[in-house]
């Protein structure tokens, strides 16, 4: 018994050690972002290029997913509402669901997969092939050029993509409502906008900014700290997706609590 204890204890403390030093390292990375983001050079060109990449990469999948979610969610909700004779509330229900929850969440999850993984893989492979070291020795700050640009681009682009997803999902929903309840587009959108408040829009934007920041910084962190060797690149991409999805769910939960506290205060 004593023997197995001796074996378990070092393993456990080692794991805990690793966990906490990993946490400290991640914290330092985020801290460095906030320390360096304010000072030049600002690398506007690289930020723009990254914004374009992010939009370009996620647009097709987001369009498709948003549209389908709009249609499916409408069709699935219709019977329940109809049961209470409230099918006319469909636009309002969809509007609330899409703007408050589905739009930001779906966009962020898709972007984690598309954008987070590609940032992780790109920076990871630059790390493995010593491109980051090469910048460093030619007096170029790789953190500024790679991490800050990509994180800012993701932070700005996710809210834009979220608005786009909201719009596409509502269009999908409109097609279904229009076909079944014979509601015109103007009536549909009047109902949609009546259902949501300023707080909904505001919290959706804030939430999207936070999701975007998370996707960017996690992708960069995983890439920047990837282990050397080719398998490090795949690992960086993979763990960037897992980590950012996990954080996005946690953030969603926390933000929802806060917003509801404000809403019903």
């Amino acid at each position: 018994m004593a023997e197995s204890n001796d074996v378990i204890k070092p393993v456990l403390t080692k794991k805990l050690d690793e966990f906490f030093s990993g946490l400290a390292k991640a914290f330092r990375f985020v801290k460095r972002f906030f320390q360096e983001v304010w000072f030049p050079p600002y690398e506007f060109r690289e930020i723009l290029r990254q914004c374009y990449e992010i939009g370009y990469r996620s647009l097709p999948l987001i369009s498709l997913t948003g549209f389908i979610i709009g249609i499916v969610f409408t069709n699935q909700s219709r019977p329940s509402l109809a049961e209470f004779g409230a099918a006319s509330w469909l636009p309002a229900l969809i509007s609330i669901a899409v703007v408050r929850a589905l739009g930001p969440l779906v966009t962020a999850l898709i972007a984690s997969g598309k954008v987070g993984s590609s940032i992780g893989a790109e920076i990871g492979s630059m790390n493995v092939t010593e491109q980051i070291d090469a910048m460093e020795v030619s007096a170029i700050n790789p953190f500024k050029y790679l991490v800050i640009t990509r994180t800012l681009a993701a932070t700005f682009m996710i809210p834009v993509l979220v608005m786009y997803t909201d719009f596409v999902a509502l269009m999908g929903s409109f097609l279904s409502v229009n076909a079944n309840e014979l509601v015109s587009m103007s009536t549909f959108f009047v109902q949609v906008f009546e259902a949501i408040s300023f707080l909904d829009i505001f919290s959706s934007v804030i939430k999207s900014l936070i999701f975007g920041f998370t996707i960017g910084i996690v992708g960069c962190y995983k890439g920047y700290n990837s282990s050397r060797g080719t398998e490090g690149v795949g690992q960086a991409a993979n763990s960037a997706v897992v980590m950012s999805m996990f954080l996005i769910f946690v953030e969603e939960l926390l933000i929802m609590q806060i917003v509801n506290a404000i809403r019903y205060a």
């Binding site: 790109e122 492979s125 630059m126 092939t129 010593e130 491109q131 070291d133 090469a134 020795v137």
Partner: peptide, 11 residues
């Protein structure tokens, strides 16, 4: 510093 794997910026 000339790196072993050249370290050219591949983008």
């Amino acid at each position: 510093f000339s790196f072993q794997a050249s370290a050219l910026y591949d983008s």
